[in-house]
Design a protein around this nucleic acid. Structure first.
Lengths: 234, 234
DNA sequence: GTAAAACTAGACGCCATTGTCTAAAACGTC
DNA sequence: GACGTTTTAGACAATGGCGTCTAGTTTTAC
């Protein structure tokens, strides 16, 4: 009756089919309400209502509001991280159709990691509560977007090694790839709106086009489609 | 005694040296507290304490918390807009030393419009309360960063007309210029940290370097891919 | 089927905050 | 120096949220 709320159980033991469902329902509802109202503005009652759960149940699982908040952030962070690495694993490996491949990758990255629910939640919460919970978001910083540019840097390095790109500083290029990918979506990202597939496609195409003008291989630029001419291509 | 709080007076009339000082002190304190705690988390008492003012004085000037919040947002928006256009007026006009000029401009833009107090405040508040006060932030969207890319687009067009740049879509290029300028600062921007002058300088240099690789005039570019030189510099 | 565990609904005390009110003090102006 | 305005400090009720408790119901396990 007192050690009921061990948060690490989730996938083990015996009595967690109903329990687990409740827990996830609470986490989802809490993420929703925290995201909309912020930590201070969110009320346990509203979370309970959204989760279709008694308020007491929340207090049974998560001792207090702050515990719930931490659990929510960790949950969303884990999901977001898994998705991020899943998307990163689809980074193009060969130089064929590089522009199209990179564009498709940028679309996946934006759609599944940056413009989705979890991305919005994390961005918003890091900004609003990051100063209040430094340890929590330190791990986000080191495992989330930090890992993103690190991993992207390595992947770009692979392409450069294969002579498909010409890059002097891989970290900078990685950050710029991400930044360019978001350039056209900044407003929507800030307001939390969800871009349409067309907008995603167009933003990615603009981004990759410019990225390749800056980092694309100058000489071999074949006639496949030099739409706007790389820097010195004939 | 009852029509004491007309908010439009500020610069006219007779009895507002002390009043005006109080008002500004309250606005500054409220901006600080709202920015740190959000609307729901901010308490009038804390704002009063920071402003070194009685709580009742706040209620005298701004009828209720929401009125104060709206006034703060408008105040910060006006300041930020003035600063933005002041910085935009320093956009380089000639093709000489384009890389250095653009870099210095990017530094000014980041330092005075994006990484400063007002920028942080607006970004944070737009994201947290934008959905709750759509009309307020609609004007921000149309007068702030919206105007930024519009204006930048025109300025880039001027340079392109002078054959210093090769740009097909000015709006896209403007958004990408801003995005590249922020690429290296994303993390700090999100956490609300203030970059040092060296970081600002380096970020701007990386951004402009890549921007010119993509949009710089191609002609004199020699085959060996000059590592640090601008595209059109000797 | 039974017992233990989990869930529900509601009441409760507590505390922080909002917004009002009042009486006294400080201020500025003539 | 007197008067009107502004500011102050504190008391005040009202509200709402947090976290606890209890009693009753449902679900789960064996």
């Amino acid at each position: 009756m007192k050690d009921r709320m061990t948060p690490a159980v989730r996938m083990t033991g015996h009595t967690q089919r109903g329990q687990c469902a409740k827990r996830m329902s609470i986490l989802d509802a809490a993420a929703d309400v925290f995201c909309r109202q912020g930590f201070a503005g969110a009320s346990i009652d509203e979370i309970a209502a959204v989760a279709c759960v008694s308020r007491q149940t929340i207090y049974n699982h998560y001792r207090e509001k702050e515990t719930l908040f931490v659990a929510v952030v960790e949950d969303v962070m884990n999901r977001a991280n898994a998705m991020l690495f899943s998307v990163l694993s689809t980074f193009p490996d060969r130089a064929d159709d590089l522009e199209d491949e990179l564009t498709a990758f940028a679309v996946r990255l934006n759609k599944n990691c940056i413009c989705n629910h979890d991305g919005k939640f994390l961005r918003k919460l890091v900004q609003t509560e990051g100063e209040r919970y430094p340890h929590l978001f330190e791990s986000w910083r080191q495992q989330g977007p930090g890992k993103l540019t690190t991993a992207l840097s390595a992947l770009l390095g692979r392409l450069a090694h294969k002579q498909a790109l010409v890059i002097d500083d891989f970290d900078v290029a990685a950050r710029q790839f991400v930044a360019l990918g978001n350039a056209d979506l900044q407003m929507m990202i800030l307001l939390g709106a969800t871009p349409t597939d067309e907008e995603l496609e167009k933003a990615a195409r603009n981004a990759v086009h410019t990225f390749l003008k800056a980092y694309g291989k100058p000489e071999v630029e074949k006639a496949g489609q030099p739409p706007q001419l790389a820097a010195i291509s004939g």
